[in-house]
Amino acid sequence: MKPWVCLLIVLWSCPAVPAAGGQVRDAMNPELALPAEGGGWQWDRRPERHDSRTLYRYMDGAAELYLAYGFRGLTVRRFVKPGAPSITVELYRLASPADAYGVFTFERQDAPAGIGQGSEFGGGMLRFWKGSHLVSIYADGEGGGVESALLALGRAVADAIPETGPEPELIRSLPGREFGLREGSLRFLRSHILLNQRFFIAHRNILNLDGTAEAVLAQYLRGGEKLHLLLVRYPDPQAAAAAYGSFLTAYLPDSAGNGRVRTEEGRWTLAERQERCILVVFGAATEADADALLREAKGRLPRRR
């Protein structure tokens, strides 16, 4: 048998390696020493990992969210305590910190918990991102101190992830609270399917979001009225120009090419392209509102490097 085959067998047969301090190293993330205990709950010592082939079954068909953000692996740990609900910890490893941020923002809806680089806690679930990891911790019931245990486990897992990473650069182009940004509404996206789940634009991929582009969607509240701003950045100006043409043809065919239309509900949609970016404001109460938001975002777009 070749030496590298032996090494693989050894790795697969030794999934968990004890470490100091009651933590147990995870063979899939050898640098991580995940907690074996938290808030009185103990790990059941059954290692469970998934790759892109097995993720679909584990997620009951919902694997695309993670695959769209460069899924690299999932480690699952279940924690038990007699007479109390069990707790599940899911540790997803994504392609980059931006991808971890993307998965986090895609599903975010609750208040922050101050864990990791961004977190939310509510409805019996704690989610946070740190570095290239997205962590989801939830219990299958309430009572018996389970909520404090979720937080304790969350802090321990966050401590076990040594790396941090930057948020996607594109989000810095969003006008902030002074323009009415609702921060919890911000989503970082890479696929049109995911974009449509949060803000339906068209059933076809008219913005050419093919995985090489990145998008930021955010909701604003201006004068008590909601509107949305979408920024998309492409690899080069040619790709942006093609996508912009596709968008105008499919979504604003009545704009005479200038990207400005008062749509059927009486609100304004404005679209522009700047170098390798497309900016679209949806649902502004007035053209002036849309213009102001668009101009501000354009001024904040990163210059091509």
Partner: peptide
Amino acid sequence: FYGRGANFFDRR
């Protein structure tokens, strides 16, 4: 009647 994410299950 309510859930979040793929494997979310809460007896509440």
